[in-house]
Design a protein around this nucleic acid. Structure first.
Length: 928
RNA sequence: GGAAGCAUAGCUCAGCUGGUUAGAGUACCUGCUUUACACGCAGGGGGUCACAGGUUCGAUUCCUGUUGUUUCCACCA
């Protein structure tokens, strides 16, 4: 016995070896043949911060299935792997790592810090790459890119400078989201809103020129910001306050006189209908401030503490300041009441610390003009747009400096041909994408951290001139001073990720890979980063290459734990794919992630499903083991590629089913229906191939009557079918299939992963042979069932059995199978009349699809029980017959239903009538 | 406040453009050391396809509404 064939498949023994084999054979490289159609995928680059998680496993499995399938289909395939520097998260990790070593970031120079950071990237980047490889990922590792590689940096600089020169990047003082913990600004989508318990304080603002007890009550959740208040706003239509508009109130504590203004952003029904306005520390208030020309008073620092101008509160953090201010307000009798409420608080998406809105100078991308083509290029159904609400169809964007809202009715231009368009799968995600683009706001791209692409802007210390340039600026363009420094800020990590589809090809250099493989074919990713990543890639690709970066965006769901909760670090319910691979093998993991999943839907992780997957892999392995046992002696004589002649009916049967499977799987994979495809292969392998064909083959291989040619034919079919199954399964479970392929081909045919995907095997599967075998199987099943019903011991061999059948010709030649698999020593084919001699009470009658089986053996069952059983069966068939008769009696049905449906219904009726009659006969016979 | 998904066997989920008796895995019950596999084999029970309407000769499938559930967007002090 080949040492490769233990009873159980052991993935650990083979996976590493197989992966090396692929690498050694350059299996992941592209073809030299330029005539081949190309298929390219860019890997969503994992962060260099963490370990592989289930999300990566799913994402990469789906990509690998696609890429392997297309490669086997003969496409020139490129899958570019990569790593993301993930600016803020990596910086946080490095800072923490240094802190543990007793090093403070503040004590390091920028260069020293970056050295540590690159060392980190080196270490953890390698770790995650190795983890990704464990999944079997067939990406071209020689082409791996890192978002901070010089070539990527070059693309970043070029894009930044071009956008700046076009006025699409600007520097401005605006309110932004600030994370005091990370010490940097954040873009809008980097803020997560969490519901939290809080209080709503009702605070009195006394009128300046009113009576002593004339005041306006303002409700706020953030009393500490009142130090920066510059107005109180009410709704223009609010009758309660109409008279007050234009008058002045006194901000408590600071005793500042501020106007009461009218603005329709105020909701009359919330709180008291009067809002304090703090333009420097609230996003809405900021806009109000601009509209009403109000002063911006900063009171909170970037560290989250109160500024000097707050007097005795200076230096306190916002939480402490709130307590002190409330205390003082109460002393002044300014607090009317407190209400407990639930409200949403913005949190940093990386560190979960409360985000502080504040005004600062940052760099922004003007997104409106970039968004328009990104909307145009998407394939959507008309009704997708209809369901975007009318306000959503107006593009609300901020103009430069003025920050005034421009409302532009969006008009669609047929600028993209169908061929150039981008399609989301499932389609519904195009709606998510479009809705976001319709409401897009300018994108804050500067970050106050060191790890990332430094903004290519330079300043002259002498004259203050700002110069934006791809090259390092050493001399001031205006005053020729050499006293130049570079902007300290770095770019949002998504800025460089947004260029990924073309920066991986060394754009803006003209490379042959760019020419061949851009735009890419499919992007596979989760719905959670459609905004962060997909939309930006589309906008920037259209802008700089003129093309959508991919043809399809395949969206998959998120992974959930066995209770249906999102896998997350904070819950601690994440499952480590590496543990799973260690215990069950990479193939089982991949199988589990795909089987029974649907595009775009979340996937629930369960150990049971994993076990089932592992069992399937083992089943396949054992089927191969059996075949190898039978075949290894004369493997040389077998033609692995061609179907033998002189096929038996069951050979044609299995090959016919295989052929259907091949066509189905191909269609499903072309439609990205991986789950359905895998399910079909599963059914074929387990039910058709193992449970039936292999069992039937045993009869032929062990039967002395069969001649050598016939046996060879069986072996050939076994091997042929197995090898085709291996090909079909390879994209899903690459390791075990490659392993078996190597054994069977004795390493002569090269790697399975470079072989051709099965095509129509053109077996002349005569439908008669197929139904004939189906009929035989049906008889075996029926007899087994009856044996069980009558409690016939499993080992008991029945002696006298008679079969009457529509396919008696087929059965005649296949009696041997029925005997063996149903455990019968002798069978006779009969005509109806043969047994109609009043002897029916001596037989148990079994009704199969197209046959009637008489098992003689009165001692096997209780007569009364048998009559009862038959009557129950009769009732069932009669009920069905009634239904069918009703259908066929319905004139409308006969007029309108397609003829094939009617024909089928008629056939069914004949079949049912036949069955009913037979059972009636039997009952009659028994009751005599 | 706006949008989307899901609701099918005890559990986890398939079910393409409506058409025989709605499927699988798992769990459960009954047998089986049948020579590839007990990570297995054979057989079995188990579903008013959430609810209510509508379209249709015919609805698990299409439409509308209701309920439950999950998620995304918005951020209202």
């Amino acid at each position: 016995m080949n040492r490769d064939f233990e009873k159980r498949y052991d993935p650990k023994k083979v996976e590493g070896e197989i992966y090396s084999l692929w690498l050694k054979n350059d299996c992941f490289k592209q073809s030299e043949d330029n005539s081949k159609e190309t298929f390219s995928v860019i890997m969503p680059p994992p962060n260099v911060t963490g370990r592989l998680h289930m999300g990566h496993a799913l994402d990469n499995t789906l990509q690998d299935i696609l890429v392997r399938y297309k490669r086997m289909k003969g496409f020139n395939t490129l899958w570019v792997p990569g790593l993301d520097h993930s600016a803020i998260s990596t910086e946080c990790k490095v800072v923490n790592m240094l802190r543990e070593k007793g090093i403070k970031k503040e004590d390091l120079t920028r260069e020293q810090f970056l050295e540590h950071a690159f060392a980190w990237k080196e270490k953890y980047g390698n770790i995650i790459v190795n983890q990704v490889k464990k999944l079997g990922v067939s990406a071209d590792w020689d082409k791996i890119k890192f978002t901070m590689d010089p070539s990527c940096s070059r693309a970043v600089k070029k894009v930044f400078v071009d956008l700046y020169n076009e006025g699409l990047i600007y520097k401005g003082k605006r309110i932004i989201n600030w994370c005091p913990n990370c010490g940097t600004s954040l873009s809008d989508i980097e803020v997560d809103f969490c519901e939290q318990k809080g209080s709503l304080w009702y605070i009195k603002y006394y009128l300046v020129d009113g009576r002593e007890d004339d005041f306006v009550t303002v409700a706020t959740t953030r009393p500490e910001t009142l130090l920066g208040d510059v107005a109180v706003a009410v709704h223009p239509e609010d009758e309660r306050y109409k008279k007050l508009v234009g008058r002045k109130v006194l901000v408590p504590i600071v005793k500042r006189e501020v106007p009461v203004i009218a603005d329709d952003f105020v909701e009359k029904d919330y709180g008291t209908g009067a809002v304090k306005i703090t333009p420097a520390h609230d996003i809405n208030d900021f806009e109000v401030g601009l509209r009403h020309n109000l002063e911006f008073i900063d009171v909170i620092s970037k560290k989250g503490t109160m500024l000097k101008n707050t007097g005795r509160y200076a230096g306190l953090n916002t939480k402490e300041a709130r307590q002190e201010i409330l205390k003082d307000l109460k002393l002044g009798d300014c607090v009317l009441k407190v209400e407990d409420i639930n409200h949403n608080v913005g949190k940093c998406y990386r560190c979960s610390c409360n985000v502080e809105p504040l005004v600062s100078v940052q760099w922004f991308v003007k997104t409106k003009n970039l968004a328009k083509p990104a909307i145009d290029c998407v394939n959507y159904r008309e009704d997708t747009l209809d369901s975007c609400s009318p306000t959503n169809k107006n593009m609300k964007c901020f103009g430069e400096n003025t920050l005034e809202k421009e409302n532009l009715e969006y008009t669609f231009l047929p600028r993209f041909s169908d061929d150039e368009k981008l399609t989301f799968l499932p389609k519904r995600f195009s709606k998510t994408y479009l809705n976001w683009l319709f409401n897009i706001r300018d994108w804050c791209i500067s970050r106050q951290i060191w790890w990332g692409h430094r903004i290519p802007a330079y300043y002259c210390k002498d004259c203050g001139e700002m110069m934006v340039s791809e090259n390092v600026v050493e001399v001031c363009a205006k005053c020729k001073s050499k006293n130049i420094y570079q902007d300290e800020d770095t770019l949002d990590t998504w800025f460089s990720s947004g260029l990924w589809p073309f920066s991986v090809f060394d754009w803006p250099k003209k490379t042959s890979d760019y020419d061949k493989f851009f735009p890419t074919s499919v992007l596979v990713t989760g719905y959670d980063i459609i905004f962060f990543w997909v939309a930006r890639m589309v906008m920037l690709s259209l802008k700089f290459t003129g093309k959508a970066p991919f043809k399809y965006v395949l969206i998959h769901g998120l992974l959930r734990d066995n209770l249906g909760r999102k896998m997350s670090k904070s819950l601690g319910n994440g499952i480590d794919p590496l543990d799973v691979i260690d215990k069950f093998g990479a193939d089982a993991l991949r199988f589990m992630l795909v089987l029974g999943s649907t595009m775009g839907n979340d996937i629930r992780f369960s150990e049971e499903k994993l076990t089932a997957s592992r069992n399937f892999v083992n089943k396949l392995f054992n089927a191969a083991r059996y075949i190898y046992l039978k075949v290894s002696d004369n493997l040389d004589c077998l033609n692995l590629k061609r179907i033998p002649e002189n096929l038996h009916p069951e050979d044609e049967w299995v090959l016919g089913k295989l052929n259907t499977l091949i066509k189905d799987v191909e269609r499903n994979l072309d439609n990205f229906d991986f789950g359905i495809a895998l399910n079909k292969i599963y059914d074929f392998v387990w039910d058709i191939f193992c449970d039936w064909y292999i069992e039937l083959s045993k009869v032929r291989l062990e039967n002395d009557l069969e001649d050598i040619d016939s046996r060879l034919c069986t072996k050939n079919v076994l091997v042929f079918a197995l090898l085709n199954v291996l090909k079909l399964l390879h994209p899903f479970v690459p390791f075990v299939t490659e392993n078996l392929w190597q054994i069977f081909t004795e390493k002569k045919l090269g790697p399975l992963m470079l072989s051709n995907f099965p095509v129509d095997i053109k077996v002349v599967a005569c439908s008669q042979q197929i139904t004939g075998t189906d009929c035989v199987i049906d008889i075996i099943k029926a007899i087994r069932k009856r044996r069980k019903e009558l409690n016939v011991p499993a080992g008991k061999i029945l002696s006298e059995v008679f079969i009457e059948s529509d396919c008696s010709e087929n059965i005649k030649n296949n009696l041997i199978f029925i005997k063996r698999l149903a455990r019968i020593s002798s069978i006779k084919i009969v005509n109806d009349s043969n047994l109609n001699n009043g002897k029916e009470n001596e037989f148990s009658v079994v009704i199969a699809q197209r046959s009637k089986i008489y098992i003689k053996n009165s001692e096997l069952f209780d007569k009364d029980e048998e009559v009862k059983r038959l009557k129950k069966e009769l009732e069932k068939f009669e009920k069905e017959l009634e239904k069918v008769n009703a259908q066929l009696g319905n004139r409308e049905f006969l007029n309108r239903a397609p003829s094939r449906v009617i024909e089928r219904m008629k056939e069914l009726k004949v079949d049912l009538l036949n069955k009913v009659e037979k059972i009636k006969d039997s009952v009659c016979g028994l009751e005599k």
